[in-house]
Amino acid sequence: MSVNLENFTVMYGDFCAVDHLTLKLPDGVTGLLGPNGAGKSSLIKALLGLVEYSEGGAKIIGNDIRTRGKYIRQLVGYMPEDNCLVPGLTGVGMVQYAGELCGMSRVEAMQRAHEVLYLVGLEEARYRKVESFSSGMQQRVKLAQALVHDPRLLFLDEPASGMDPKGRQEMLDLIVDIADKGRMSILLATHILADVERTCERVVIMHRGRIVEDSRVDEVRKSYSNTFSVKVKTNAAEFYKYLENANCAVKNMNKDVYDVTLPKGTDTKLILKAAKDTGAELRKLVPSVRSLEDVFIKRILEDSGADF
């Protein structure tokens, strides 16, 4: 278990950024998904001790963050969303510095710095000052400084932000490669769903500091495979009543559009039969969820109590 949260709460004054989270994250790559302000960065910062948490507790790789904070920060790599580079240092100097601060010897940190800079594609620019780097290069050097000591757990906060499409692609490929070849668990915080779909085995969706979804990415999609978006023109009330009586979950999403979740062992034939039996004119019958994005929007809207 890489991260274990128990009633974990982060407050900024009266505002609750992380709301009593209880969560167990297994090893592997987990996507922490949520809109801006959902509490993703606050959660990561609180786990690292960069933000004070107000309630509950957390363990990272079996170590209590209250008592073993310094040791945890040695085990963890953190790629922050902010720039947070040390001006005046070269790319290789910056990564070496990070390695030494984590407890590597000078020589080992230097060797490893060259290695990870090569990995992130900065081998040509490694002797340039970090302040002269483009935003994409700064993202890469931030990843390199997080990887230099080969952490057991890697926190990536919006790793592909500010990168061009090619750079973004490379960054995501790199994350997949690190997850495959390395022995570290990764927690990837982002609001870009495609990044999570591409890289993560597991997804935790956060909204307003709460968890609204926590499961494997494939399971999330599967769980919605029996839900259909339905719109009928006439006899709608009888039609939906018929479906409810047939143990379907019916939920009004937007005006005339309803989400119908079919019971196990049934398929769309049940909806067609309902339409036929009630005389309803079926105008729309499509799978409700086609991608993680749909799940995300659905979950966020459900949590907001808004109409779909």
Binding site: R73, Q74, P80, D82, L101
Partner: peptide
């Protein structure tokens, strides 16, 4: 001042630095 301007505290204090 430079560390404050460049938000480098996050770099230092996410490492085992007190």
């Amino acid at each position: 001042a430079r560390d404050r301007k460049n938000k480098s505290f996050g770099f230092y204090f996410s490492k085992p630095v007190s």
